[in-house]
């Protein structure tokens, strides 16, 4: 199943298919490991529903859902 990162629930994981859009933040995140083929897991979502914490390349990072929309995931 293909979906975007923001749709994933806590505990779900998948593989990054593509990171859409342009801009510096995208570039920055790609350099932090959000590249095609990376495994990604949603660790938790903040108490107020945003941002989300994901695990990628073995470390934890948080990002807002408004950015996660751009990241396409193949759910595993």
């Amino acid at each position: 199943m293909i979906t975007t990162l923001n749709e994933l629930k806590t505990g779900q994981s998948g593989i990054i298919i593509s990171y859409n859009g342009k801009g510096e933040l995208r570039k920055h995140l790609m350099e932090m490991g959000f590249v095609r083929g990376s495994n990604i897991e949603v660790k938790r979502i903040a108490p107020l529903g945003d941002p989300m914490e994901v695990k990628i390349k073995g470390y934890s990072i948080s990002l807002r859902k408004e950015e996660a929309v751009n990241i396409e995931i193949e759910v595993t």
Binding site: M32, E53, Y59, I61, S62, R64
Partner: peptide, 10 residues
């Protein structure tokens, strides 16, 4: 100003 929220949780 975008002030994106991307932060490592060490």
């Amino acid at each position: 100003m975008s002030s994106p929220f991307v932060m490592e949780l060490p």
